[in-house]
Amino acid sequence: MSDSYFSQPGALHRRTFLRVAGASAATASLVLAGCSTDTPTPTPVNPNLLTLGSADTGLLNYLYLLEQLKTAFYQKVVDAPPADLRTGEKAIFDDLRDHELVHRETLRYILGTDAFDAALSKPLAFDFSSLTLTTRAGVLAGAQQLEDLGVAAYTGALRLLKTITTVSLLAKVVSVEARHAALVRDLRTPGSFAGDDVVISTGALQSVSLAKTPVQVVAEAKAFFLPIVVSTDSLPTA
């Protein structure tokens, strides 16, 4: 794993220090600073902390990460489909994998060198141990969790973007994710395509779907990223 895509505050500080230390004129003040007693307590460095960047790029990286997660999930399913899948369902999972793969690759190409993993030697691995991938019920439960979360993530993130063309592009993706979500829900529980747990059923906002902030989404998905800890600190919040 390349250091450059994971926060290394310690390393950065050190580099800054060396650059400053190299300027001889500043040496005297550095020595004085070294005598100062209010040395800040060093923040512990988490080598597994993944930061996503800021502004629109950070948000694209966040959605790119979620597309990676879904692609990896479906890839696992189609590589070893549960024995009790029903006729035609393997083909559905193939399609779902293909769509998520196209989404993932599109975002990767748009991000280019800004992709959080552009310099990684191998793609991020995900931890699906919280799911049961050996049964139809288990993979459908996992698919529903990821698809509903994906829809809520896109729906909540687009208002934070500043670029109109990016909003236009991602709006093309979110409705396909909603189609996926409705399908896997129908496969799991017939008629649950827009169940009350994802479409608000009471109050002034009834009949609209959930929208979640990056903080909420990452909190819900954090088990899949382990041992990586995804930081949303640099992402816009308004």
Binding site: Y154, T155, V174, S175, A178, F193, L205, S207, V208, S209
Partner: peptide, 9 residues
């Protein structure tokens, strides 16, 4: 977008 995704469902 919240309405849009319900239409998609």
């Amino acid at each position: 977008l919240q309405i849009h995704s319900v239409e998609a469902r």
